[in-house]
Simulated assay, not measured.
Amino acid sequence: MAIKGKLIIVGGAEDKGRPQDIPKNAGDNDTAVDEYYEKGILHRIVQESVKKEKSRIEIVTTASTLPKEIGKDYKDAFGRLNAKNTGILEIENREQAGDEQILKRLEKADVVMITGGDQLRLTSILGGTPFLSLLQEKYQKEDFIYAGSSAGAAAASNNMVFQGTSDLALYKGKVRLTSGLGIINDVVIDTHFITRGRIGRLLQAVVANPRIIGIGLEENAALMVTNGTKMEAIGPGMSIIVDGRSIIDSNFNDIDDGQSISIENVTLHVMSKYDIYHMDTFKLNIDHSNKRDE
């Protein structure tokens, strides 16, 4: 069955159109001023939604330890895009994830935006709940958008990185994975990717299971998945795809935990805005037009 919904995963720190985000030297006609309103990630989320600015957007702050602050930040950001039919769902425990009123709000939502924070907190609260079951069903069967930033993106897959420092990431056992929310399968997603030097985390996750595709999202970068297979770069930042199917050899099964990993021949793609990666054929189509500068 074809997936009807859209998945938009964001690497974190996306432009929210706040005055302090605009460079001090930006003039009235500077492209930095309209980057958020015309080309930004949140603008694209609104435009991809079924009712555009009139879509019902629910902001889920479960991953955050500052739910009120982060919820207001996103609500204000969508408001600046004239998407004012927006609410905040502060789901702080598993009981609330089965609350009838919260489920009714989810049923009416056209977009769910899951914020950053701690992805393990997010999965431990939402995993196996009526809220997650309904969220998965809406994504599969409706013209609906699951949007997740940082933790909300990392938790979207069925395989989720939840621990592992960048400097030790290529030592066996120093990267830990668990089950995510299962919105998308056969991938593992990492965020703040270039800023925090997380290539090693993705390489270890992929060498341990070369069947999965590694997705590394830089800050203010996003990928949109349609039909469950077509993945388009929609943010100004870059994204990295790690394909382990081409691995010829590694020492992963021969070494003990704590020892360094060797890998021969792993495929790596770099995506920027308008590029499209086909997850069913594992092919990248690079955009060669001048749209990037529009």
Rank of each mutant, 00 (worst) to 15 (best):
Y139P: 11
Q140N: 15
Q140Y: 15
E142I: 07
E142T: 09
D143M: 15
F144L: 14
I145L: 12
Y146F: 10
Y146Q: 07
A147Y: 11
G148I: 15
S149T: 15
S149L: 15
S149D: 13
S150R: 04
A151R: 12
A151E: 07
G152N: 10
G152K: 08
A153W: 04
A153Q: 00
A153D: 00
A154D: 00
A154I: 01
A155G: 02
A155E: 04
A155L: 05
A155S: 05
A156D: 02
A156S: 08
S157I: 07
N158F: 06
N158M: 06
N159I: 09
V161R: 06
V161N: 09
Q163I: 03
Q163G: 10
Q163A: 11
Q163C: 06
Q163F: 06
Q163T: 06
G164A: 01
G164N: 00
T165L: 11
T165C: 11
T165Y: 07
S166E: 03
L168T: 00
A169L: 03
A169M: 02
A169S: 02
L170M: 10
L170H: 10
K172Q: 00
K172I: 00
K174I: 03
K174P: 01
V175N: 04
R176W: 08
L177K: 08
L177D: 01
T178Q: 12
T178I: 12
S179I: 00
G180Y: 09
G180V: 04
G180I: 05
L181V: 05
G182P: 12
G182F: 09
I183F: 12
I183Y: 08
I184Q: 13
I184W: 13
N185E: 13
N185L: 14
D186E: 07
D186L: 05
V187W: 14
V188L: 06
V188P: 11
V188I: 14
I189E: 04
I189A: 01
D190G: 07
D190M: 07
D190S: 03
D190A: 04
T191R: 12
T191I: 09
H192S: 05
